[in-house]
Simulated scan of single mutants.
Amino acid sequence: MTFGLGALVSLFGVVAFGAVLPVVPTGAAVSGAAALAAHENPVMVVLVVLAGALGAYLGDLATYALCRWGGEALARRLRWLRGNARLDRLGTELRSREVPVLLVSRLVPGGRIPMLLAASVIGVTWRTFLYANAPACLLWSAVYASVGMLGGTVFPRPWEGVVAAIVLVVVVTQVAGWVHRRREATA
């Protein structure tokens, strides 16, 4: 089996789709692809990072467009922002540090969509969003590809590295989500 253009296009599509509908484990897809690519040709991992980042970027653009279209009514209906206090807090954080907040929100499990929604409600411009989201998507993709490469180098067979990378991503994501929920519950 060779890891080629078809795999990269598939990865791009899965990540773009998962960025809009967050039911697809996009981080695990990037990690698994990186583990597989590392076994065949380590240079391909760079293309995996780029395909993952581009898919995430375009998916985030679509998500941000939907958030801007839905606006504050969507925020209230989805109850992600649970009242004006949370929206105000996110808005204050975004206004003071737009780029770092958007960058970090891409890496925090479950943090991206509420932050995109808050950014759209407070009126973060398209220009700022385009500028801030590019490095966020690249960093996100590189982090998950690194996890995949780690899994791919530990195990001798490609499928073992892919499984290890996916399991590691799922465990880390679940633990990070649990910690985030605990912090919010105590805040």
Rank of each mutant, 00 (worst) to 15 (best):
Pro135Ser: 12
Arg95Tyr: 05
Thr92Pro: 03
Glu93Thr: 08
Gly151Gln: 05
Trp80Ser: 10
Gly111Arg: 03
Leu58Asp: 11
Leu50Lys: 09
Asp88Pro: 03
Ala73Phe: 10
Ser141Trp: 01
Val101Phe: 10
Gly27Val: 06
Ala35Met: 11
Leu81Glu: 04
Gly148Gln: 13
Val170Ala: 14
Val46His: 01
Arg79His: 13
Ala164Asp: 04
Arg68Asp: 10
Leu168Trp: 00
Arg106Tyr: 09
Tyr57Lys: 02
Arg95Pro: 08
Leu21Ile: 15
Arg127Glu: 00
Ile113Asn: 13
Val167Ser: 04
Leu78Glu: 15
Thr63Pro: 03
Val169Leu: 05
Tyr144Gly: 02
Asp60Phe: 02
Thr26Pro: 02
Gly152Gln: 08
Val99Gly: 12
Ala16Cys: 14
Ser105Arg: 05
Glu93Trp: 14
Thr125Trp: 02
Gly111Glu: 05
Val172Phe: 12
Val46Asp: 02
Glu160Ile: 06
Ala62Lys: 01
Ala19Leu: 13
Val15Trp: 10
Val14Cys: 08
Trp126Tyr: 08
Phe3Gln: 07
Leu66Met: 11
Ala51Tyr: 01
Ala187Val: 04
Leu8Glu: 09
Gly70Ile: 05
Val121Ala: 09
Arg157Ile: 01
Val162Asn: 10
Ala134Cys: 07
Ala37Val: 04
Leu103Thr: 10
Leu102Trp: 04
Val49Thr: 04
Asn41Cys: 03
Arg95Gly: 13
Pro156Ser: 11
Pro22Thr: 10
Ala136Met: 01
Val175Glu: 08
Leu21Phe: 15
Thr173Val: 12
Leu107Trp: 07
Ala34Glu: 07
Leu8Lys: 08
Arg97Val: 04
Met115Ser: 14
Pro42Glu: 08
Pro158Met: 00
Val167His: 07
Gly148Trp: 11
Asn84Pro: 15
Ala19Tyr: 14
Gly6Ile: 09
Trp140Asp: 05
Gly83Leu: 08
Arg77Asp: 12
Ala16Trp: 05
Ala19Cys: 14
Pro114Val: 03
Val143Asp: 13
Asn41Glu: 10
Ala65Tyr: 11
Val30Phe: 06
Ser105Phe: 12
Thr125Cys: 05
Pro158Arg: 00
Pro109Lys: 01
Ala136Cys: 02
Gly83Glu: 12
Ala165Gly: 09
Gly71Trp: 08
Glu160Tyr: 03
Met1Phe: 00
Ala164Ser: 12
Pro156Phe: 01
Val9Asp: 05
Val162Glu: 08
Ser105Gly: 04
Trp178Gly: 11
Leu102Tyr: 02
Leu74Trp: 13
Ala75His: 05
Pro100Asn: 07
Arg95His: 13
Ala136Val: 02
Gly110Thr: 06
Met1Ile: 00
Arg97Asn: 12
Thr63Glu: 03
Tyr144Pro: 01
Leu8Arg: 05
Arg89Asp: 12
Ala38Ser: 14
Asn133Cys: 11
Ala187Cys: 00
Glu40Tyr: 09
Val23Gln: 06
Ala62Ser: 07
Gly32Ser: 10
Ala119Tyr: 02
Leu61Cys: 14
Trp126Val: 09
Gly55Pro: 07
Leu58Asn: 04
Ala35Tyr: 06
Trp159Val: 13
Arg76Leu: 06
Met44Phe: 05
Gly177Cys: 11
Gly91Asn: 12
Val20Asp: 09
Pro158Asp: 02
Ala136Lys: 03
Leu21Pro: 07
Ala165Gln: 10
Val163Ile: 13
